[in-house]
Computed example of a mutant assay.
Amino acid sequence: MPAEPEFLPVVPDGAQPPYVLAKQALAHAIAAGALAPEQRLPSERYLCERLGISRSTLRRTLKELGEEGLVESSERRGWRVRRVGFSHSPDAAALVGFADLNRSLGRAVTARVLSARTRPAASEEAERFQVATRAELFELRRVRFLDGLPVCVSHDLVPLAVAPAVAGADFTTASLFGLLAAAGHVPVGARYTARAALADAEQKRLLDLSGPSPVLNTRRLSLDSAGLPCADSRETYRADRYEVRLTLG
C-alpha cells in the first residue's frame, strides 16, 4: 500500500480563513502530483491531523474543491481526485488543435473570447511568419474551457492571408486549426517549447486560481505541408488540469 501523502499544517495568517488555506494545500498537492488523478484522498481523520484543522473545516474545504472540479465524492468510497483537464503527448498536441483533440476524447470544449482583431505584423512577427512587414495578422486571445472548467489562456497569431475566414469566425466554439485546415494549411510540423512558471495576476483571475499557483506556458509555431508558418500559439495551462505524457526510447 503506498504511503499516505504528507501535508504541511495550516498556519492561520489572519488574511484568509483556515478552509481557504487548507484548500490551497490540497490543490497544491494535486498540482504537484502528490495526489494523482483517480487517487482516493486519505481519511478525514488523517487529513484533519496533518492539516491541523477541524472536521467541519475539512468538509467545507472538500466541498469547495468539489465545486471547482478538483475532487469528487462517492458515498461508499469517500473522496478522490477527479481526472479533469487536458492530457496528451507533446507530438500530438503540436499538430492537433486544443478543440479538435479534446472533442475527439468526448469533452465539451468552449471558450470565452477576450479579444479578436486584425493588425499589422511587427518586424519580428513578419520575420517569424516569413511575410512582409506590416502584413495583416489575426490575433486571438481566449480562455479555454473543458466540461465547463477553465483550463488554459491562449494567444494565437495567424497571417490573415493564410486563412481569411478566421476574421469572421465565432471562436467561442470554432476551431482555429479547423479553419486553417479548411483553407488548405493543415499543420504537419511544429516547433514546440514548454516552461513551468507561477501564474501572474491576470492568469490567476482568468483561470480561477488563488495564492502561488503553478502553470505551464507552452509555445508552438505550426508549419504547413510547404514548411511555412501558419500559426503562432502561446498557451498557459492550469497545472492541476494539464498533463503531458512522454514516451522515451
Rank of each mutant, 00 (worst) to 15 (best):
M1K: 10
P2D: 14
E4I: 06
E4W: 07
E4Y: 07
L8E: 15
G14T: 09
G14E: 09
Y19P: 00
L21N: 01
A25I: 05
A27T: 07
A29Y: 05
A29I: 06
R40M: 11
R40V: 09
L41F: 09
S43A: 12
L58P: 02
R60C: 04
L62H: 00
K63I: 04
G69I: 06
L70D: 03
V71S: 03
S73Q: 12
S73K: 11
S74Y: 00
E75Y: 08
V81A: 01
A92T: 14
L95I: 12
L95S: 04
D100S: 14
L101P: 02
N102K: 08
N102H: 13
R103A: 10
L105T: 10
G106K: 08
A111W: 01
A126Q: 08
E127T: 13
F129S: 05
R134C: 12
A135V: 04
G148F: 02
G148Y: 05
S154G: 14
H155W: 13
L160Y: 10
A163C: 15
A163S: 14
V166S: 00
A182C: 06
H185P: 10
L206M: 08
S213W: 01
N217C: 13
L223V: 02
G227A: 12
G227S: 12
L228M: 13
L228E: 13
P229G: 04
P229R: 00
A231H: 00
D232E: 14
R234N: 11
L246K: 11
G249R: 13
